[in-house]
Structures are given as structure tokens and as C-alpha cells.
Design a protein around this nucleic acid. Structure first.
Lengths: 241, 241
DNA sequence: TCACGTCTTGACGGTATTTTCACTATGTCC
DNA sequence: GGACATAGTGAAAATACCGTCAAGACGTGA
């Protein structure tokens, strides 16, 4: 009584060695996966971009475009977060780091046990499915999609730096509560707080992005207490209710 | 005796696929939810408008009126803010954005894990309820929201300095008891009391903010004992009863 | 390597807040 | 009523807090 129409998942396999490809592909299909196949980087990338795979099994060494390049383009150009399981020839530190740098989610060293590949694949897919869906935070006409990290106000996209985005997320989660500077700093920088109060600058920039271009300010300063994000008028209406 | 308030919540499920609807509905009911069901957009909207659900699970594709239209009408025409969890067929950017624009609070991509649906549903309901359940202190027509640090009297905002706010909080918490100057000073300044008695000024300012603009004074001085915040008339009425 | 965006840092000025003080008013006890 | 202690009033001085902005450090991708 599962609701999934098609087995454990749809997988893209990018591997130039025909022998390995066949073995992996057939094994996965026997286990109920649907498998697409590419023998070089270019067609692999094309497939990865145009389809929504649950995961990609990607050989590091490929003709045309190697796995690292493919992965980077997938992440940066196409902005896809499809989980990638990288197959590397040897366990060199460089390979590992390169793969992780480029956005791979896991790697497997050849030669590998086919069963281990499936186990890792399954883990990746499950992990990803949990994150695929996301909560949408909303304060007045401000919205933040925690999955895509897109923030909008009044239907228009906001261009925010990573820290500004984090600030916004914190303030929206707590809205309409007051959040102390201390709490914000701890959440953003952890235990190693910066020596000088850089939070001011970031708040300044955040405000410039989310409030300056609009009529009604939403980010309010509570002197010596902290900050709060809220629509004052809407709040008042609720208070009397 | 209908105890439906006690469960985790009252949910409206709008889904035309009978199989999915049954599975979700039965699962939620087993978990203690009360579930109403609609198989098309029009009756779904009707139910959503006429009842107060804790949340709505809404399929995107529906006969008659699709989920987006329904959601928009619910928000714009009926002005209801019932949390909406949207079920979308595929992970396309367009779908996400459409849902976001139209006022959905969260979305899930099919196929989904039923347990995750429940987790997100619970999160939505909890978040919604939290808004109402902040701690609000009240004395007569004076209110102080300890989460947002907003104080009002007679529905109008009060502009208070941080210390004045703290004084007010102390007095409201203790109301209608008398609080000695000593106790107030200790709570506000801790052990390092200021050399000159600055409390007088702050009380003066507090009074100017919360009593001066109104007919009935609430902050009363008990000579050589301290201060108390209370509505004398209301107190009297209670005494004689 | 360069170009670019981001983060940090510090200086400056403005504003809100707190403290202090002088003066007045009120209450209490004899 | 008189003397003393307590409290209200108000404003000026001192301080703390915050917004603004630019310059440089830093890291990353082309």
C-alpha cells in the first residue's frame, strides 16, 4: 500500500565503461528502479538538466566532460540539487575533496559492492525527499521559501546575501516576536562571535533590501532589546480580537 | 458529546483521486484528526469558507476549479488565513512559485511519505496556534504582550522606553499587589543600584504614558510602601460580591 | 591571475534613553 | 501647624544604542 507509482526511484547512470554500466543498470532495474543511461558527460548533463531524477550515479572519469565539471554545471548553471553519487577510481584525498567541493552528495570507491551502491542510493533518495518539500514563511507580503531560499516581497524577488537571508529566516520564524541581538548572533555565528558588532551592518543591508523599496516597513528596532519583523497594523487588529 | 476539539486538529482534504484521499484520510483519522473531504474544487472551497479548519490539504489538480484558484479565492475573496498544504505533482519551479504567490503555506511533492505529510500538517497547525497563545498580561484595558513587547491601552499603542516597559511588566505581573520601591529597583538594576533615586523619574514617565492620556488612573502610589497597578472600581465591585 | 560579491571593521553622527538634580507638592507624626 | 520624610515634576547633561557608509579583507569563480 505504497502510494508511489514507480518503485524506489528514477535514476540517471553516467558511466562510459559498458561493462560496469550494464551490471549496475540491470541490478537496479531488477530492484525496481527506472534507469536512464548516458555514456559520456555531455549527454549525461543534458539528461540531468532536462529530467527530474531522484538521484544520479556519476563516474568521475568520462569522455568529453568529466564528472566534476558535469556536477558543477548541474549545480551552478542549471541550479539543480538532484543528489549525486560519485564513483571515483581511487581513494585519494584530492578526489574526495574535489567531489565534495563540486557538490556531490556521496562517493563510492571502485571497485565497489553493488549492494553498497544501492544502499547509498536509497539513503540519498530518502534524504532528498524529506527536503524536497518546504515550509513557506510569510509575514505580510513578504515570503520566504525555505527550500529554494527564494525571498519575495510584493511578488518581486529580493536579492539577499547569504547572511541577510539567514537573518530574514530567523526573524520570520520568530515573527512577530522580538529577537535579541544576542540570540541572532548566536544563531548566525555560533559560539565564535565576531569581536565587533557586524550584525548592525547586516541588519542595515537587510533593511535596505526588504523595507527601503516599499511603503510599509516590516523590520522594527526595539531599542536595547532587539528586532522584530511584523506588520504593525495587522497585529493591532488581531489584538482587539 | 463531540470531543473533536481535543484531537490534533480538524482538517479539510481536497483530493479527487479516491485512492489517495482514502489513504490520507484514514491515516489522519487513525492519528486522531477529524477529516472533512471534498473531491472537487467547488465543494472544497465551499467547505473551506463555511468552516474553521485548522488546516487544509489541497491537491493542485482538481476537476472544476484547481487548487491554485481555490487557494486564491479563499485568501482574497473569503479572506481566510487557514493554513494550506498544497500537493503538487512534480517538482517544477513554476508549481512552487505559483503556490507561493497564491498563498499556500507549504507544499509537498508527489509521491510523498504519508508520515511526512502528517509532520508538516502538525507544524502548520502548531505555528498557526502559536500566534494566538502568546503571553499577554492584562490589567483593566491595559495589555502587554511579553513576546512582542507591545503595550496598549484602550486599543492604542503606548510608546514606552525600555525601563518603563520593564516597570510596567513588573507591576502587571504583581497586580493588584503592592510592590516596594526596593523590590522594583532590585529587579531592574540588580545589585548595582544607581546612586541617586532615578526610579522616581521612570515612574513619572511611566505614569505619563499609561495614565495621563486616559480618564481612569491605574498606577497608584502607596505612601512609604510602594506602588500598585490596579483598577480600583473593578476591585471594589469584586469585594462586595 | 583578475573581477566580483560578501563579510568585517571602524568611524561618524544622530537619536533615544538614562541619570542627575533642583524644585515643588503631598503626606505623616507630634 | 511645623518639621520631617516621601513623592511628583520637569529639564538638562551624560550616556548608550543604533543607522549609515565606506574602505579593506576575504574567498570564489572565471
Amino acid at each position: 500500500m505504497t502510494m508511489r507509482e514507480e518503485g524506489p526511484g528514477l535514476v540517471l547512470l553516467v558511466e562510459d565503461n559498458r561493462g560496469i554500466a550494464e551490471m549496475v543498470g540491470e541490478f537496479l532495474e531488477r530492484r525496481g528502479y527506472s534507469v536512464d543511461y548516458a555514456s559520456d558527460g555531455v549527454t549525461g548533463l543534458h539528461l540531468a538538466v532536462t529530467n527530474d531524477y531522484d538521484a544520479i550515479v556519476l563516474d568521475l572519469m568520462l569522455p568529453g566532460m568529466d564528472g566534476l565539471q558535469l556536477c558543477r554545471k548541474l549545480r551552478h548553471d542549471a541550479k539543480k540539487s538532484t543528489p549525486v553519487l560519485m564513483l571515483t577510481a581511487r581513494d585519494t584525498l584530492d578526489d574526495k575533496l574535489a567531489g565534495l567541493d563540486v557538490g556531490a552528495d556521496d562517493y563510492l570507491i571502485k571497485p565497489f559492492e553493488i549492494r553498497e551502491l544501492e544502499a547509498r542510493l536509497r539513503a540519498l533518495i530518502r534524504r532528498d525527499r524529506r527536503q524536497v518539500s518546504a515550509e513557506i514563511l510569510r509575514v505580510a507580503d513578504l515570503t520566504l521559501d525555505t527550500a529554494t531560499l527564494r525571498a519575495t516581497r510584493g511578488g518581486k524577488d529580493l536579492d539577499l546575501s547569504p547572511i541577510a537571508l539567514k537573518l530574514l529566516m530567523i526573524l520570520m520564524r520568530e515573527s512577530p516576536r522580538v529577537v535579541s541581538r544576542r540570540d541572532i548572533e548566536r544563531e548566525v555565528w555560533g559560539d565564535l562571535l565576531p569581536d565587533s558588532d557586524t550584525l548592525r551592518s547586516h541588519l542595515y543591508n537587510l533593511r535596505k533590501a526588504i523595507d527601503k523599496p516599499f511603503a510599509k516597513p516590516l523590520l522594527h528596532t526595539i531599542h536595547s532589546s532587539g528586532y522584530r519583523l511584523a506588520d504593525l497594523d495587522a497585529e493591532l487588529a488581531q489584538h482587539s480580537a
